[in-house]
């Protein structure tokens, strides 16, 4: 998969985990073509945290879903974790999603599963984890819940959790399988200052320990400092920030 070697800002020579070039995207809306993304070029390297900002409706979520293989790319090139997603097969997308952790604007927990079981779903999708058995998966899921400060609430159902707690369960679910790429859409929106900070620290550890790449959408000025790089989306065009 000869991905070109590019120098990172701090001088490392590594293949980027995300490599987007000249990506356009348009929605069909009531028979009308509605362009949302224009000529996006973006590379994200292992261990790097990139924050994506921009006004509402500028296309942040759209770009994030395309990076995670949730939306098929129509034109340009979109190379994620080594596979090209332009006109990719369903099975390629599914396989990619297993290596990507996704935190959505809405938490989307399964209401009929406990917090622990919801987190475990992120492990059960990996056959390697399934083979280790349920006790091992439970232990791993519980450890993650403890890291987001919910160890004591692992048996609770989503209906009995607060909005911020639900958001943290969803974060634990995305992190539990140690994804190589984490995509987070306003992960701290529902959190207070302190737990928001904890979550960002968790992201930092993931990036440092496992060389995972993280792309995070946020309006939260308090956490901008955690980023290696900030990129700005304006009306579908990417502007590299500080």
């Amino acid at each position: 998969m000869g991905a070109p070697l590019v120098a990172t800002p701090d001088g490392r020579a590594e293949a980027p985990l995300i490599e987007v070039s000249h990506l356009d995207h348009a929605f069909e809306d009531a028979g009308q073509r509605k362009p949302v993304l224009h000529d996006i070029c973006l590379s994200v390297f292992p261990g790097e945290i990139v924050i994506l900002t921009g006004p509402s409706g500028s296309g942040k979520t759209t770009l994030l879903t395309m990076l995670g293989g949730l939306r098929a790319a129509q034109s340009g090139s979109l190379r994620i974790l080594g596979s090209e997603l332009l006109q990719a097969q369903k099975s390629t997308l599914t396989a990619l999603r297993r290596q990507v952790g996704f935190i959505f604007q809405a938490h989307n927990l399964l209401p009929y599963l406990t917090a622990l079981a919801n987190v475990r779903l992120g492990l059960e999708v990996q056959t390697a984890w399934l083979d280790q058995g349920q006790p091992a998966m439970d232990a791993c899921a519980l450890a993650l819940l403890e890291q987001v400060g919910l160890g004591a609430r692992s048996g609770a159902y989503p209906a009995n959790l607060s909005g911020g707690q639900k958001q943290r369960v969803a974060i634990a679910r995305a992190l539990v399988a140690r994804p190589r790429l984490l995509l987070a859409d306003e992960p701290t929106a529902a959190l207070d200052k302190e737990s928001g900070r904890d979550v960002v620290d968790l992201f930092r550890h993931l990036a440092d320990d496992t060389q995972a790449s993280i792309v995070m959408v946020t309006h939260d000025n308090k956490i901008l400092d955690s980023a290696d790089r900030i990129v700005h989306l304006d009306d579908g065009r990417l502007v590299e920030g500080s």
């Binding site: 949730l70 369903k90 099975s91 599914t94 990619l96 999603r97 297993r98 959505f104 809405a106 399964l110």
Partner: peptide, 13 residues
């Protein structure tokens, strides 16, 4: 939305 989430996590159709 929950089923879509399962798909997004990597469960197949």
């Amino acid at each position: 939305p929950e089923y879509a989430t399962l798909k997004a996590i990597g469960y197949d159709d």
